[in-house]
Design a protein around this nucleic acid. Sequence first.
DNA 1: AAAAACTTTTGCCATTTGGCAAATAATGAA
DNA 2: TTCATTATTTGCCAAATGGCAAAAGTTTTT
Lengths: 194, 194
Amino acid sequence: MTTFVTMDKLINYLLEFGQLNQQQIDLIKRKAQVLELKKGDYFSEAGKIPKQVAFIEEGILRVCYYNSEGDEITKYFVDENNFAVDINSFNQKIPSSEYVQAVTDCTLLVFSTESLNDLSATIIQWDAIIYKITEKALVEKVNKLSPMLAEDAKTRYLSFLEKFPNLANRIPLSYLASYLGITQSSLSRIRKSI
Amino acid sequence: MTTFVTMDKLINYLLEFGQLNQQQIDLIKRKAQVLELKKGDYFSEAGKIPKQVAFIEEGILRVCYYNSEGDEITKYFVDENNFAVDINSFNQKIPSSEYVQAVTDCTLLVFSTESLNDLSATIIQWDAIIYKITEKALVEKVNKLSPMLAEDAKTRYLSFLEKFPNLANRIPLSYLASYLGITQSSLSRIRKSI
DNA sequence: AAAAACTTTTGCCATTTGGCAAATAATGAA
DNA sequence: TTCATTATTTGCCAAATGGCAAAAGTTTTT
């Protein structure tokens, strides 16, 4: 089933980073493919070279990997109005060490490598826009991660609640715990203590 | 005193990310200014808009801030053959929340905002090169930070030793401890236990 | 509605880490 | 060298977090 999606969120997001005329907008819309994921579905798998990039219209994804002890770690969450991709693997065409899973039902707009190349070749500002988006996303990731090391688990949880008030209740405890770097039971106790 | 510096490291580093002819290389060398810092000197201060970017020819810098409890936190170290700048503040011209300090005596090659603009206007590949460098640096930061949350302090310390075998002995314990997210005494005990 | 599957909480205790202050050790200056 | 300064280690105990398994709570399926 293909739900009707306006792609307004995507276009508005892109327009934050550069100008686009109607013709360019239409082209972008044509290149984007709607992908609906159910909770628990995977968008990409570890060990494969990612060949597409997703913009999240609706829902939450998480990017995960297994650490040296074999525990599943949630590296970060990606929610509405953001792109999800393992930039490093995507650019360098190397197998990803991460996998991406839908935390909730999701509506994604997917761009294949070829579509992105077409857009890059056709829309003169495209590369600059993508560059700005990439840099902003990476800076945000660093700024989220850095303070986490310097604070205890309770503070990390409170910061998470503060920054993502609408995420905490949509995410299973175990995912959040591994993101915060603590065990599920510790998080449960921290939650009780508040 | 201005020491003679060949700038070879800088040029070789730039050439990893794009081609440059001799004329362009000479221009870059002319735009770079050598800055010698003594251990403990500051390269930039919190609260100010950064107006220069440093390439580290020799030495180690650290990027720091004060957390909510007023503790000084080492966000990360930057060593030879890397650029140091608060990208976010630099690009957006907003006051930095970080400051940059020399951990060891350093030889830096400094580019002012104006120099960078000149290079960008004169060298056609400049922006693309800077973009690749920026992206790579940010991806590396994320990849360093992410696993740290998922591991205990001893493992974090061992990984640090593994990744930066030549850094650990050049860095005061307190700096390293705050980078690893633990107290100095804990790090001392961890070190003893190995 | 009942059963099954999954998620969250809790108890118990071990281990890790923190906080503080004093003791050592190392470094740099006179 | 000697003193002063700074960095590191250590002791003592408290607090935070982990590991494991069982209990309680939710959601989904039949």
